[in-house]
């Protein structure tokens, strides 16, 4: 059986975030390079129809960091869910280069794992790390994201293939799920489709919600930032690790619902969510201690390295004066 390949997160940093960082650095952080909490959001993967070729083009599996990332009253945009992260800003490019990235990464991965084992808390599963160096004079921002995702020792495999979710769950059930999630978007959720009734619950309620429910009516759902048909998005990875760690006896085979329909489908286009039945390679695997994790974002060249946001053309007064008519 083919192994399940997860579409990694891609960071999307709005210029407003760098503006916010600039003022934070000057007014608050100053020379401190302590970690600060940062917030981001992601929503369901989207496709756009190319009017000329008629093909659907998948837009990226984005995690968006905006101008309100440092704000305490951060609110995810409509239909999106929040992710919390650790932000570490270095004062010099040398410090940025020399940072012990493995240690930082492992610390975040440990936090996620602790949230799973100790608190059974799924809210930390999409935690991320962002390290940066801001060259304020040149309006250049070097940054590197990491989205720790746990590696299953024996990879998950997909039986058959990913298919359209409305082949499995019919329109009414899809509509019921949509209506429930529209009220309060959930990053991870459970669905039971029992005796004509479709119900949604949060992931912490796994045991009681699925008690006595036949396997064929159980669905593990998550808001899927990927739009690629055969690749579920990165958040599923840690959700699977969470379920394996807490409920090893019942999670060797899971029915996954990749939720991509934050809007009801337009007339003429179908539901976009995907469904697949996945199995763990070796069911008897032990999940203690913490599995290893991967997830550094690649740069523009496709290598593991930092990215550069050069805002000089949009911020530097002299450059803007040149642009003015």
């Amino acid at each position: 059986m083919p192994i399940v390949q997860f579409a990694p997160f891609s960071s999307l940093v709005q210029p407003a975030f760098w503006h916010e960082l600039t003022s934070l650095k000057i007014d608050v952080l100053k020379l401190s390079d302590e970690s600060v909490p940062v917030r981001a959001s992601y929503t369901a993967g989207r496709t756009i129809k190319d009017r000329e070729t008629g093909k659907d083009v998948a837009l990226g599996c984005n995690l968006t960091v905006g101008g309100d990332a440092f704000s305490k009253d951060f609110q995810a945009p409509p239909n999106a869910v929040a992710a919390t992260g650790v932000f570490k800003n270095y004062n010099t490019i040398e410090e940025f280069k020399a940072a012990d990235k493995t240690a930082l990464f492992n610390k975040v991965a440990d936090e996620i794992w602790e949230g799973v084992k100790k608190n059974r808390d799924p809210s930390l599963l999409n935690r991320f790390l962002l390290i940066a160096y801001a060259d304020l004079k040149k309006y250049k921002y070097y940054y590197w994201f990491a989205f720790p995702g746990f590696v299953a020792k024996a990879a998950w495999e997909i039986g058959g293939a990913w298919k359209a979710a409305d082949v499995e769950l019919f329109g009414d059930a899809m509509k019921a799920i949509h209506d429930d999630l529209a009220k309060a978007p959930k990053a991870y959720f459970l669905v039971r489709n029992n005796e004509g009734k479709t119900e949604v619950a949060s992931v912490e309620k796994y045991e009681e919600f699925f008690a006595g429910v036949p396997l064929y009516s159980q669905y593990i759902g998550f808001l899927d930032p990927s739009a690629i048909p055969e690749n579920p998005g990165w958040p599923l990875r840690n959700l699977l690790a969470y379920l394996r760690a807490l409920y090893p006896s019942t999670t060797a085979l899971l029915r996954i619902l990749c939720w991509r329909d934050v809007e009801l489908p337009h007339p003429g286009s179908g539901w976009k969510s995907r469904f697949g039945i996945i199995e763990i390679g070796v069911p008897q695997e032990t999940v203690d201690p913490r599995p290893s994790a991967v997830g550094w974002e690649k740069n523009v060249q496709g290598k593991l390295g930092p990215r550069l946001a050069d805002l000089a053309p949009m911020m530097d007064p002299t450059r803007l004066a040149d642009q003015a008519v």
Binding site: F6, P8, V300, G302, G305
Partner: peptide, 25 residues
């Protein structure tokens, strides 16, 4: 492509081993 001189030379391909469950572009 941003000027290569300006990106700190810190590619660390050994940071994590290839992971077969990560979807390649």
């Amino acid at each position: 492509t941003p000027d290569l001189d300006e990106i700190p030379d810190m590619e660390e391909d050994d940071l994590e081993a290839g992971d077969e469950a990560t979807a390649a572009p």
